[in-house]
Amino acid sequence: MSSSEGKGKDKDKGKNKLDTTRRAHPYDRADFMGTKSARAVNPEVIAKTIKKMKRALLVIGSNLSDEELAKVVEFAKVSGLEVVGAGGVAGRLKDIPNHYMNLHLLVGYIIEGWKGFDGNGKYDALVFVGHIYYHLSPMLRALSNFSSTRLISIDRYYYPSADMTFGNLSDEEFIQALDRLIDIMREE
């Protein structure tokens, strides 16, 4: 399980410059686009949005190589986001403070207006990375319809029901996008 090359027509476009807005279709082509679907954006836009959030939660999934997970952990450190390992990945999260919570349960809690791990209030944004596409996509559709939380994906897939997402990225582009996010979050 995991991501795609998905080069094709886009093969030569933007070889040197990272453009994460391309291939903005559901990773599983047959998945629903929704009556309104997400804007595919570049890391700059996502970083800017995350910086504006007061109480965002980074929701990490299991679908990450060790190298990718290391980048995600780095991103968590520089962004200072609260972290939850939402699935088996929890056993691989070593260097940062983190919680474990089942993804389905987390989604249910958010929809019911849960006040967070510390009880201090609702999260204003959820930032997703490292999930199985088909597992997260319907969960995002649930959140987008039944909650007002901002839904941001920094995953390798285009998620139609997020508010903000990358397009479908190759492995290389995914690492570059994470690097870019880390760089921008570092710049204060």
Partner: peptide
């Protein structure tokens, strides 16, 4: 095979067929 990746976008198990 052209490496187009179309197969990957169809696979319900998210397998990396084109690779």
């Amino acid at each position: 095979c052209t490496g187009c990746g179309n197969c990957n976008f169809q696979c319900p198990e998210e397998l990396r067929i084109s690779e």
